[in-house]
């Protein structure tokens, strides 16, 4: 485990034995994978498979029961600046009194001190991000007046303004128009050419092979993870969408309820 050694390759994101639950219901059990750098990676699975939860667990937004997540071989707190997270659109009150540019500028706040206001440089970066996503003309617009696709592009511009090297996105393609879908694909190409890594929760099986290099199939547990050509197989799809393993599910729930993991000495 010589991860800190700069000569050896460290994955931008490595997840080991991650388990998460909602109350006593297991959502994810023992998920482990490591992703390559400079690729686009899709997290794929049926509804309720725990895709968003996985992303939140990785970002430390929801508590995990067990597991270790490392970013470039380090903890998240040391690599915050290198990591950008794009939440689902629905998680925001879009009536909030704020305009587009100010939302994008939020992406710069991780770089600012306690009381600092964004500098001209920050504003330039935010404006460039808006241009990259073809949202320039909307920069003074109230966010409540945007369409769904435009809202998504504002979120992506905000992540872009963070100038991270690893991007984690929660369903950026959900419910967007064609123009936005094109803009996102352009963005992916752009980021990839700069050697950046993108992890996306994705729900559309028709486009997953086209838009992504790598797939992580999950359904409450890890089914498969690897390059598209290797893992996008009928067998994996059947396993992912064929329903949960009910016994695994039930017994894990029982384990959480009984708090067995605390009673049982580690082996």
């Amino acid at each position: 485990m010589n991860r800190s050694n700069s000569n050896t390759y460290t994955s931008p994101l490595s997840v080991q034995h991650l388990s998460m639950r909602y109350h006593h219901k297991p959502v994810l059990t023992d998920v482990s994978f490591e992703i390559p750098e400079g690729k686009t990676i899709a997290i794929v699975g049926p509804n309720g498979a725990g895709k968003s939860t996985l992303l939140k667990g990785i970002m430390g937004l929801e508590p995990s029961i067990e597991g270790l997540v490392s970013f470039f071989g380090e903890s998240l707190d040391k690599k915050r600046q290198a990591t950008a997270y794009v939440p689902q659109r629905e998680e925001i009150d879009w009536d909030f009194p704020i305009n587009v540019l100010d939302v994008v500028l939020m992406g710069r706040h991780g770089h600012l001190k306690l009381w600092q206001r964004p500098s001209q440089l920050d504003i330039d970066i935010a404006e460039q991000a808006l241009k990259d996503l073809k949202m320039w003309e909307f920069k003074e617009r109230q966010i409540s007046q945007l369409s769904g696709g435009q809202q998504q592009r504002v979120f992506l511009a905000r992540a872009l303004a963070q100038q991270a090297t690893l991007y984690l996105m929660d369903e950026p393609f959900a419910g967007v128009d064609v123009a936005t879908e094109q803009a996102i694909i352009e963005l992916f190409k752009d980021l990839k050419s700069q050697g950046k890594t993108i992890v996306c929760v994705h729900h559309d099986l028709n486009t997953v092979g086209e838009y992504f290099d790598w797939i992580i199939f999950i359904n409450a547990r890890l089914i498969a993870a690897g390059p598209v050509v290797e893992v996008l197989t009928k067998e994996n799809l059947n396993k992912t969408y064929g329903g949960r393993l009910s016994l695994l599910n039930d017994l894990t729930e029982q384990m959480y309820r009984s708090q067995l993991n605390k009673a049982h000495d580690t082996d």
């Binding site: 430390g60 997270y85 998680e91 706040h109």
Partner: peptide, 22 residues
């Protein structure tokens, strides 16, 4: 006045604020 930007960021989305290390 001093923390206006941060307060607004948190009021807008505390989750996102957490992810950028606030």
């Amino acid at each position: 006045v001093l923390f206006f930007q941060k307060f607004r960021l948190i009021a807008f989305s505390a989750t996102y604020a957490r992810t950028i290390g606030i």
